[in-house]
Computed example of a mutant assay.
Amino acid sequence: MVTVAPCLRRRLAPRHRVALWRVAFLINELKLGGTETQVCLLARELRARGTDVHVLVLRGGGAHVAALRLAGIQVHEIGFATSGSWPAVLAGALKSGATLVRLLRRLKPQVLHAFLYRSYVLGPPAARLAGVPIVVAGRRSQSFFKQGRRWVFALERAATQMTDHVIANAVAVAEDARTLERVPAHKLSVIYNGLPASAYERIAAAQIDTCLPVIVCVANLLPVKGHHFLLQAAAMLSQRGRACTLVFVGEGPEREKVEREASDLKVDVRFTGPVTDTRGLLARADVVVLPSLHEGLSNAIMEGMAAGRPIVGTAVGGTPELLDGRGLLVPPADSKALADAVCRLLDDPEFAASLAGTARAWARKNLDATVFADEHVKLYQRLLEARCVG
């Protein structure tokens, strides 16, 4: 599951072993989202192993802050500003960079692991100035948001030069980093996202007042998540006499537009807003659908797999790695294909149940939080040992 450079695989003499005692994670913010959830899961797992974990947040606040602090993990807010004129943003970035350098010098982590674009561009130079031994960067999605923006790639490549290793959360994401970002293959590893044991617990289904089949879509209301195409698919299903109730779990700037389109199409949609624990809603789902136009490795699909629900996903990013033979894959931006796939699952409950069971078993084996954390620790350890030998 994890590809590590051959030079880091060699066995080292005991005298070269280095204890992993402090790690700092750097992330843009701690709002409800897939990457943020994975950072918190990894932080808790490393903390349980006795590692001193600090989470550094470029922008303050977020839904996960309280839970991290309750778990004994310190959260440090940098105060990075992202609005205003270009001179103001640049001045803010320089100020935040200086704050980050001072904080890293005080904390003295052995590893800085930065997760999203702003973090892994700002983090490496700050870490080098602060004398942090190992710098790791995450890649959580493909490069669709960077297309046509040369300066974005230029900053990224400069930061990667100062980075020891890049961890992608899917093979498709790693291949994107290798081909488009030109990250050397020896500098890349793949570690799939993890799921806590609680994701597999059987819990009571949420109460949803409808007599129609329920389709649950867990995704923030953003253009890239493709809600428009699911609404169109639901309208097609209604025309076929297969009307459904859609449950949109999440929040975002597209909400008003999505609500308006749902009303125009006369599709029954329930908006839950942000939800921290989706298990009850997933348990209520007849089908889980993620109509994204782009993805990394979707937490929503992973959680649907763990819940044992039949899933339809678009063949983008790491979704085929999750659903190959374990769910139905359709092309992105194809409402008819979405409607056909949902209809197939609703019309053939035995087939749907078979896919769901296979998906749940595969997730248990391949998306375990313990394995997820162990693979990170092994990689951090290899990099530290290689640095000591060097």
Rank of each mutant, 00 (worst) to 15 (best):
R11N: 14
H16L: 15
L20K: 02
L30R: 13
Q38E: 15
E45Y: 01
G50H: 05
T51L: 12
V53W: 03
L58N: 08
L70W: 12
A81C: 07
S85N: 07
P87C: 07
L94R: 11
K95D: 09
S96A: 15
G97S: 13
R118C: 06
S119A: 15
S119Y: 11
S119N: 11
L129W: 14
A130M: 12
I134T: 09
V135L: 05
R150A: 14
R157K: 15
A158E: 09
V166G: 09
R178D: 03
H186D: 15
S189W: 08
I191Y: 00
Y192D: 05
P196D: 07
A206M: 05
A206R: 07
Q207L: 11
D209P: 05
C211Q: 14
I215K: 04
A219K: 08
V224Q: 06
A233D: 05
A243K: 12
G252F: 08
P253Q: 11
A262F: 00
T272P: 01
G273T: 12
D277E: 11
L282H: 00
A285G: 02
D286P: 00
V287A: 06
P291L: 01
E295F: 01
A306I: 07
G317N: 06
P331H: 11
P332N: 10
D334K: 01
K336W: 12
A337E: 07
R344G: 08
E350K: 14
A352I: 10
A353L: 11
A359M: 09
K365C: 06
L367D: 08
T370L: 10
E375K: 09
K378G: 08
